[in-house]
């Protein structure tokens, strides 16, 4: 998890968190971003996390554009371009935490396979990051 000037300190009372994965196409780490977002919203915190799909968010399609304004957000970036964070900020998201997958991969010493198949290391990395995000969601909106 990162702290930065993009991390908002506004108070909030919402009961859900918007998870915004980059889902980058060209790198294995984009696939890991996608995989950990699914783990959070489908398995670990299904009632507390909502998944925000970036393309319709940019297009201003509801409910995505409303989700990022209503709920605290956690973008998941697959590379240093940090597209998910940039797009979230541009669309009025209140970012409470950020994930940068390359940093997490380094921290856990795991090397995902390819964009098509992230392999066992990629799966393990996605699990670990998903658990960190779930813990952050609990911290933000309660257990």
């Amino acid at each position: 998890m990162q702290n930065s000037q993009e991390v908002s300190s506004q108070p909030f009372t919402e009961d859900k968190v918007a998870v915004i994965p980059c889902a980058g196409m060209d790198k294995a780490l984009g696939s890991v971003a996608r995989a950990c977002a699914f783990k959070v919203v489908e398995k670990l915190r299904p009632g507390k996390a909502v998944l925000v799909c970036i393309p319709p968010l940019v297009a201003g399609v509801k409910p995505y554009s409303e989700m990022v304004k209503t709920y605290p957000s956690i973008p998941i970036d697959g590379c240093a371009e940090r597209c998910a964070t940039k797009i979230a900020v541009k669309n009025g998201a209140r970012i409470k935490a950020r994930i940068l997958i390359p940093e997490s991969a380094q921290k856990h010493n795991l090397k995902p396979g390819s964009a098509s198949d992230i392999g066992p290391d990629g799966e393990e990395l996605a699990e670990k990051i998903a658990e960190e995000i779930a813990a952050e969601i609990d911290r933000l909106v309660g257990k």
Partner: peptide
């Protein structure tokens, strides 16, 4: 070649 849509949309 593939173009990464999030990067494309973010201003790549």
């Amino acid at each position: 070649v593939t173009l990464c849509l999030p990067l494309f949309l973010a201003g790549g």
